[in-house]
């Protein structure tokens, strides 16, 4: 129904906290099945942009479109709540600190929302949780509580929780930044698997190697603007802007 070109379409996103302009007129289009990485120094507005996409941090100005529907359209409060809850069901989000529900097992973390929002029976929701947890390699730990899991395992459960809603788009905000180095790979493997299944993803990351290996396009953000964007082989190897080169100089070096 929509142009394949603009499955995700961010138009002139602008966001201020008081006098601080955190996003300055950012536009971004992502095709269905595309994977976009956002890199940039801390405080450049990466999280704010990601969190604007599902309206967790509403934009001051600008529009967010997903699959032909405006996410942040202006509606009276009640209607807007209904609308945004429906939109959010289509947008999975994975946080740096997992944000698993500590009072629920892995199974219930995954099954809760489908049961509550999609009217699945307990059996159907449990089966869905098993499938999704199996997919991220966490089936053996299905009845564990988050406190009994390692960081990498928690993040995999968090990914399964998001996937259980069958989202059209997945957002990752530094999904591996809080993990011990030896646990990063298990999460990256899951994200790679999603990439192979043509999930549309926007990934904020500090891992240049990972970004280069899975992404179709990389955006470099600094101080609320997209400084430069392009395919990873171009942006990482031949950046045109001095700020990009400076940033990559630090981070590619640090990664080695």
């Amino acid at each position: 129904m929509t142009d394949k070109q603009d499955f995700v379409d961010i138009r002139h996103a602008q966001k201020s906290y008081g006098n601080l302009e955190v996003l300055k007129d950012i536009s971004l289009k992502v095709k269905r099945g595309q994977i976009v990485a956002i890199i940039g120094p801390s405080g450049s507005g990466k999280s704010t942009l990601l969190r604007a996409i599902n309206d967790l941090d509403p934009l001051t100005k600008g529009e967010i479109w997903l699959d032909g529907v405006q996410v942040n359209k202006k509606l009276p409060h009640r209607q807007y709540e209904k609308h945004i809850n429906e939109m959010r069901q289509q947008i999975g989000m994975v946080f740096q600190h997992f944000n698993l529900f500590p009072h629920m097992t892995a199974r219930d973390n995954v099954a809760m929302a489908p049961k509550m929002l999609k009217g699945l029976s307990k059996e159907e929701a449990d089966k869905l949780a098993e499938e999704q947890l199996d997919k991220v390699g966490m089936l053996e730990r299905i009845d564990y509580y988050p406190s009994q899991l390692s960081g990498g395992q928690k993040q995999r459960v968090a990914i399964a929780r998001a996937l259980a809603m069958h989202p059209k788009l997945m957002l990752f905000d530094e999904a591996t930044s809080a993990l011990d180095p030896e646990l990063v790979d298990e999460v990256n493997q899951v994200m790679k698997k999603l990439a192979e299944e043509d999930m549309t993803m926007i990934i904020v990351t500090h891992e240049m190697d990972f970004a280069a290996s899975v992404c179709d396009r990389v955006l470099f953000m600094d101080q609320g603007v997209v400084v430069e964007e392009g395919p990873p082989e171009v942006l990482f190897k031949n950046p045109t802007k001095a700020r990009t080169r400076e940033f990559l100089g630090k981070h590619l070096g640090a990664n080695k």
Binding site: N85, Q89, G92, M112, A113, A158, R161
Partner: peptide, 8 residues
Amino acid sequence: EAARTLGL
């Protein structure tokens, strides 16, 4: 946030 993100 996690709950709202799921659509609750």
